[in-house]
Nucleic acid binder design. Structure first.
Lengths: 335, 335
DNA sequence: TCGGTTTACTAAATCGGTTTACTTCAAGAG
DNA sequence: CTCTTGAAGTAAACCGATTTAGTAAACCGA
């Protein structure tokens, strides 16, 4: 037997579809207690469950949001997703998860797909490669929220961390241990996270009277990172400390350290962005810059859903979270 | 302006909705080239995108599948999700992600929600706490697929790894290094993964003429694991090797090792299930039993989608993947 | 030039709900 | 006894697509 419909329930309860619909939506004002009971029984007997497609078609709300992340395999993305999921679960909203793979085309395809699916809103960890798309979404008044990375010229809610402050703290921490030649390594400057960290780094170094020349800033593709590090170490004033811009950079840095037989922190102190799991189990344990990813995810979902439910779209806002510097063994005294 | 509908397109192209619908579904047989062009133009001009809710309502297919995992934060779950997502992306299917949190109630709520959403099928990493639910889904002929954990008495596709063989290899490996007192530590025996590993362990130990008594098997809640380990180490024939049943157990084991000041592998050799990230960066590097999680995820999606698309449901099948023992430093020679 | 095909297209029903506007009936007011 | 009002409920339109059954016009052979 096919699934029961509202019509079946109505027939069995001996009332009209309209009344059943009222019941389903908990509008009991115009309904006798008796009718209510009959409907309840019919629903129970038929194991009826409303078709949310049909409902969504009429109501123009589907109770689902889309999330597009660059890559769910990154720890940060996973944690953000979990935060989003947690909140949505409480609110009975379902989450459609998409991986853009840092590919602008996929990102575009996905936003279109999500809109076709009539999701009520989208949370985007943007690739940054679809400026016009972001703008048009925001202008349409479509509920959209950006995370982790800022996009320019787009009036939409944004949730990020204070990258400048985070990197400043890391630099100050290392400087306080006597480090003077500190290197920052990140991927190419294609997204706000990296540019902000780079700028923050430059400013902090200058502030402390340390070399702020570009020699200590490495913005390179992961694949050429070890090369670049190798070259830097051959130059005068070899680095005594390194800040890794994310988990992938850290992996390369650790591989470099291993190959060169460097000792941490004696030869090179290490600080890494991202909530590296096992940071406390590595030898030496690793100093990290943690992001409150779960809370950020929760906040994102909360903000988006509030926006969806409120009649008028509130002014676009930016929420800035603080990172936490967790000092462990890898950032030790300079020689 | 509200979004354009098929009616708007039809009006603008000067044809009927039916014709536009034919066009959308690429049934050009009964359509003049001229009409086709006009429709194309209208769609372009109005930036029309079909409403998949409406389509799904009529067609009874939504092009989306649900995935319920116990906890996305587990590395294994994340990887499985990624595999599923990859395949679905290729097939233009969207993925609704749910976290059951090992909570039977949530799992139930989610399956109901997914069915209400008319998803075409469900991939479940079951909590194991909803036997009747699993059965009824399978009996209804609803496309459902179980992963990672087997469920009894349910005729449905299942994707698992060969846990017995995996644990046997690990035991043999350790035995070949001279270890005679090997301990297996897992969580409580509530799911097939753990019981299979435990049984496989027992069999392998017996096969090798080693102590197969239950003294070397610890099935305990994570919270009491360190206690149990401590007690076992006070008994005669202290363990020289430990197999950790998953990543959480490993964390406890490592904490225990640290507290007790044990040296790995000199005092205790370690082997851990799951694709622990950083396994190759820990000191010593960690021997792991890797699961082909990405392929398993892909396979799951492929199988489910094939089943959805085929008219008749194929016979339920079980797909068993092999684990890979990756030997690193933590499993060294016994004293 | 007439009946039969083919081609190109359309009207209307349908999917399963929600919502609006209306009806019916009983009780209370005057 | 009539009029108003409120309670309880319903018929029908609607959401935006697909699909079925059918039609109008062109073409074609005899």
């Amino acid at each position: 037997m096919g699934k029961a419909t509202i019509g079946d329930v109505a027939a069995r309860a001996g009332v009209s579809k309209s009344t059943v619909s009222q019941y389903l939506n908990k509008r009991y004002q115009h309904m006798g207690q008796e009718t209510r009971t009959k409907i309840e029984e019919a629903i129970e007997a038929l194991d009826y469950r409303p078709n949310v497609l049909a409902r969504g078609l009429k109501q123009k709300r589907t109770g689902s949001v889309g999330v597009i992340v660059a890559n769910i395999m990154h720890r940060l993305s996973t944690e953000i997703c979990r935060g989003i999921e947690d909140y949505c679960q409480e609110q009975n909203i379902s989450v459609i998860l998409c991986n853009s793979d840092e590919d602008g085309e996929k990102e575009k395809k996905y936003t279109e797909m999500l809109q076709a699916k009539q999701v009520d809103g989208i949370i985007l960890l943007p690739t940054g490669k679809n400026g016009p798309l972001y703008e048009s979404l925001a202008e349409q008044g479509y509920p959209i929220l950006f995370m982790d990375r800022r996009v320019n010229n787009v009036k939409a809610d944004t949730i990020v961390v204070d990258n400048r402050k985070a990197v400043t703290r890391a630099v100050e921490h290392l400087a306080s241990l006597g480090h003077r030649s500190i290197v920052l390594a990140t991927g190419p400057l294609t997204i706000s996270t990296r540019t902000e960290r780079t700028e923050g780094f430059r400013a902090a170094m200058r502030e402390l009277g340390l070399d702020d020349g570009s020699g200590n800033i490495i913005n390179a593709e992961i694949s050429s990172l070890k090369d670049r590090l190798g070259k830097r170490f051959e130059e005068p004033e070899a680095p005594t400390a390194l800040i890794a811009g994310n988990d992938l950079v850290l992996l390369e840095a650790l591989a470099f350290v291993k190959e060169q037989g460097l000792r941490v922190p004696a030869d090179l102190a290490l600080v890494a962005f991202d909530n590296i799991p096992f940071a406390h189990l590595l030898t030496p344990t690793l100093t990290t810059i943690n992001q409150p990813s779960l809370e950020m995810g929760r906040k994102a979902a909360e903000r988006l859903i509030t926006r969806i439910r409120s009649e008028e779209a509130p002014e676009a806002a930016e929420f800035v979270f603080e990172c936490e510097l967790v000092v462990r063994e890898s950032s030790g005294q300079a020689r």
